[in-house]
Simulated scan of single mutants.
Amino acid sequence: MKTLYLVRHAKSSWKHDVEDHKRPLKGRGERDGKLVSKKVAKEIDPPQRIITSDATRALSTAHFFKDALEIDETNFETNHDLYDFSGQNVMRIIKSLPDSLDKIMIVGHNHAFTSVANMLGNRYIDNVPTCGFVMLQFDEKKWSDITTGETVKTIFPRDLK
């Protein structure tokens, strides 16, 4: 069985004059990152690896989950290809994950994450909000074989306030 945890980056700030890739989190994003990651840590088995987009807002969000889930540095990596908004790169990364890993968390961006959650899950999600968490499980033994799995859990910031 394979388990995929999707986390959309927390709310970012538009007040800084920086390129999109370098946009930081805003205060609400930091608060939501702490809130959701702590809730997730109480409700799931930790992933064996966290893979995050290298965009500042995604990387900052991923660090909240890394800390809450007590993931060590050797199982935390960035992947520029997760700076993807269509979902094609995200799907390619998922399908090429090492089969020795059964639980993976990826942190990235919309519209890709809503699309992937709907493509791979069995429950329609209108929009994965900022700092939204989606847990999907698959009966397959190989990541390359996954198709539609089960949407097991969602944790969204609005549900915790």
Rank of each mutant, 00 (worst) to 15 (best):
R92W: 15
A62G: 00
N127Y: 07
P157V: 05
D45N: 11
F85M: 13
G27I: 15
W14P: 04
N75E: 13
P24G: 03
R158C: 11
H80I: 13
F156R: 03
L136I: 14
H80W: 13
T52Y: 03
T74E: 10
N127V: 12
R158F: 15
K103N: 10
P47M: 09
E19S: 08
A58W: 00
L120I: 11
L101T: 04
K2D: 01
S86D: 15
A62W: 01
Q88G: 10
P129D: 03
E140F: 07
D102T: 15
F64W: 01
R49G: 04
K153Q: 15
I50S: 00
L136A: 06
G132T: 06
T61E: 08
L120F: 06
R28M: 06
S37K: 05
D102P: 08
E150V: 15
V40P: 00
V90Q: 00
D99F: 03
K142T: 08
R92D: 14
K153P: 08
I50C: 01
D20P: 05
P98E: 14
H111W: 07
Q137K: 14
S53I: 03
T52V: 04
N79D: 15
K153Y: 04
N89A: 10
K11Y: 05
F138A: 02
K103M: 12
D99Y: 08
K161I: 09
K103Q: 08
L82R: 00
V152I: 14
I50L: 06
L136C: 02
D20V: 11
T78Y: 07
F64T: 01
I93W: 06
R57I: 05
F65V: 12
T61S: 02
R28I: 11
S86K: 13
D17H: 14
E19K: 11
I146C: 06
K38E: 05
Y124F: 15
K2P: 02
L25S: 04
S37P: 00
G149S: 07
W143I: 11
D81S: 04
I44S: 05
G132I: 07
S100M: 09
G33V: 11
L6T: 01
K2V: 11
V134K: 03
L82M: 05
K11L: 13
F113L: 14
L69E: 01
E140C: 09
T61P: 02
Y124M: 12
L6P: 01
F64P: 04
L160Y: 06
Y5S: 02
K39L: 06
Q48G: 11
R31L: 05
A58L: 03
R158H: 13
F76M: 10
R23C: 07
G33I: 13
D67M: 08
D102R: 14
V7E: 03
H9G: 03
R57F: 00
N110P: 07
F64M: 02
T61R: 01
D17P: 06
M135I: 09
L97Q: 09
S115L: 15
D72S: 13
S37R: 01
R31T: 11
R123S: 10
D17F: 11
F156I: 15
V116E: 07
T114E: 14
R28Y: 01
N110W: 08
K142D: 07
